[in-house]
Design a protein around this nucleic acid. Sequence first.
DNA 1: GCACAACATGACCGAGCGGTCAACTTGCTA
DNA 2: TAGCAAGTTGACCGCTCGGTCATGTTGTGC
Lengths: 225, 225
Amino acid sequence: MRPAATPADPAAAVVTPETSPPGTVLPDGGRPLRADAARNREAVLTAAEEEFAARGLEASISAIARRAGIAKGTVFRHFATKEDLATAIAARHARELTAIARRLRGSTDPEAALLEFLTEAAGRLQRRRVAVLMTVPAPGSELDRLQREVHDAVVPLVDEARAAGVLREDVTGTDVFLLMCAPVHTVDALADPPPELWRRYVGVVFDGLRPAGASPLAHPAPTWR
Amino acid sequence: MRPAATPADPAAAVVTPETSPPGTVLPDGGRPLRADAARNREAVLTAAEEEFAARGLEASISAIARRAGIAKGTVFRHFATKEDLATAIAARHARELTAIARRLRGSTDPEAALLEFLTEAAGRLQRRRVAVLMTVPAPGSELDRLQREVHDAVVPLVDEARAAGVLREDVTGTDVFLLMCAPVHTVDALADPPPELWRRYVGVVFDGLRPAGASPLAHPAPTWR
DNA sequence: GCACAACATGACCGAGCGGTCAACTTGCTA
DNA sequence: TAGCAAGTTGACCGCTCGGTCATGTTGTGC
C-alpha cells in the first residue's frame, strides 16, 4: 500500500514552507518540487493551455500528456482531476488580470487606463482562448475567489474613469468586467478571423461606454455574485 | 438485409414532393411522414433544443431521447448523426433571424428597426442558448448557406441605418452580424443572471454603434467568409 | 556513492458515448 | 379490415474518456 499522503492531495502533507529556499516551485503551499517534477509540471500547464485553446474543455488528458511528452499518470500526479488542471490555468489568467488592473489604478489618464485594461484583457483572452475555462466556478472555490479579485480590481479603475467624466454615469465596474470578454467572443463567429480583429470590437464596446451619445439602458446594473 | 433507401438518408429516396398534400411534414424534401413519426420528430427537436441549451454540445443523444420520451434508435432514424440534429436546430434559428431581418427591411425608422433586430436576435439566443450550435460550420454546408443568408439579410438593414445617419459611418453589416451575440455572451459570465439583463448590453453595444462620440476603430472591417 | 522518498510510467478499469440493427409494432392505403 | 411499408425499440458494439495503481526509475540529502 502507498503512504497515506499522496502529492496529488497537498492538503494531506505536513509542510513547512518557510524552510524551503526562495524561488522554489511550491505547488499550493506544498514542499518544494524535485527538479524533474517542476519541469514536468510546467510542461503540463503549457501543453494544457495550448490543448484547451485548440479544443476547448473537451481536450483530453491523454492529448495533453502527449503534447507535454510525458505519461498520462504524471499529469494526474500534478493535478488530481482534469478540473483541477483547468482551474490552475484559469487561475493563472485571473491573477494576471488582477495585476494589470492594480497597476493601472490611479493613473493620470483614467480613460487610457481603462482602455488599456480592456485591450490587455481581450488580447490575452484571444491568445489563450481561455474563455471556456472562465465559466462560472463553484461558489467558494479558489477560482471563484480569484474572479472576485479581478472584479474588485476593475471597480476602482471604472470609478476613476467615471469620476473623470470619460465614462457614462450608468455603467459600473461589474458591467466592464462582464463586457471584457465580448470582443473576443464576437470574433469567434468568423471562420478565419484576422488575428487583431478583436481590437475593432474593443473600440466599439469602449465607445458604447462613453458618455457621448449614451441612451438610457433598459435594465439596471447587475451585482457581482 | 434492409431496403437500400433508409429515411435517415433522404438523398437516396426517390420523391415526388408535388404529390403530397400541403402542410404535410416533409423532412428535407422527402415523402410525407407518418403521423407518429412527425410527432416524434418534433419531440426530438424540442428535447434537443432544451438539452443543448442546458448542457451545450456535450448533451448526449440518450438524454435527448429520454427527454423526448422515445428510444435512442428513433432519434437516429430522424437525424443520421448528432451533428445533423444540432444543425437542424441551428438552421431553424437561422431561418427565423433571416425572416426577422427581411421583415424589418425598408422601415420608415431604420434606427428602431436595427435595434429591434438586435433585440430579437439576442432574446432568441438567450432563450434557446443556441450560441454553441452556431459555431463555424463546414464551408458549403447547409448551415453555412443559412448563416450567409442571415448575414446578407442584415446588411441592407445596416445600410439603411447608416444612410439615415443613425449609425456610425465605419460600421458594416458584418460588424453588426458578429456583434449580435455579444450581449448574451456577456451575461454568461454571471452565475445567476437576471433573465432580462442581456437587454442592458444590447443597449451598450447599440450605443457603441451610434455616430455620436464614435472614435476611429483600430482595425479595418472584416469580410464575411 | 548509498539509500530512500519522490516521481514517472503505462497497462488497466468502469462508465458513457455515438451509432447499428434484427426483431417487433403500427399507421396508412386499397 | 388485411397487408405491408414505415416507424419504433433497446440490446449491443467499438471506442474514448477520466482516473487508478503496482512497478520501475531517479533526483537528492547525508
